[in-house]
Design a protein around this nucleic acid. Sequence first.
DNA 1: CACGAGACCTGTTCGC
DNA 2: TGCGAACAGGTCTCGT
Length: 271
Amino acid sequence: MPELPEVETITRSLRPALVGRTILAGQLLWKRSLAAPSAGKFQAGIAGQTVQEVTRRAKFIHLRLSASSLIVHLRMSGDLALVPGKPVPGKHDRLLLFLSGDSTLVFSDARKFGRIWLLSDPQELFARLGPEPLADDFTPDRLYRSLQARRRQLKPLLLDQGFLAGLGNIYTDEALHTAGLHPLTSSDAVSPEQAGALWAAIRAVLAEGIRRNGASIDWVYRGGDFQNHFRVYGRTGEPCPECGTAIERLVIGQRGTHVCPQCQPLKEKIR
DNA sequence: CACGAGACCTGTTCGC
DNA sequence: TGCGAACAGGTCTCGT
């Protein structure tokens, strides 16, 4: 489920409930959910630490603890929730963290793609990430220059977390449609004006996603309702909200991609 | 460097 | 109804 707005929504909901709590013990139910360190070091390292801060970087949830950092990536189907008491593990629960104040932080993940790290320095993970799209240092000019520096199709480039950190399949399709750019456009063919439109579209789409508490699709429900406001994502064959043309589905970089052929013309020839 | 395919996983929906 | 195929919000690694 999670792209930047969904992760931000979860982070905001957990923050007030988690800060100040102490982790008493952990119960790892699926070994591979733990990326680092080893299970033994994790159990020993986590116990007794208090949550100082809960923040988001790209699609990572960062719990800054007294002596280290607990970092969670939800990938496709992960979820992180605080529940009262000490629950019986559910079918998809992968890690339980028992907290002071008689509550439990539950990491569940049907598809088992999600990962958890306990690190002394979060930069181990964050150093490779591109700019945060909602931060002040992400400017239209910076986007234009970084697009010019590459020669890649826009869609895969925007999904590249080292280029820009936080967009996923939904918000990329939505942003490209809002900006009127075809996902196969070569990044170095984007004009300064188009880059400015893309910059504004990325920020607008992410801000709307956050405002609507993210999108909730399928069985993963968190109360967000952005899924009811998609312009193109998952709307193959339905009319474009701008011009009424039927939305098409393409596969680009092995990801389902939704475009309005009228609003997002592909001008250049594809080599 | 850019790109496509395959892996990692389970669950739901689609098509015949 | 049944059953396999296709598909799903992400990312890594390998080969060309």
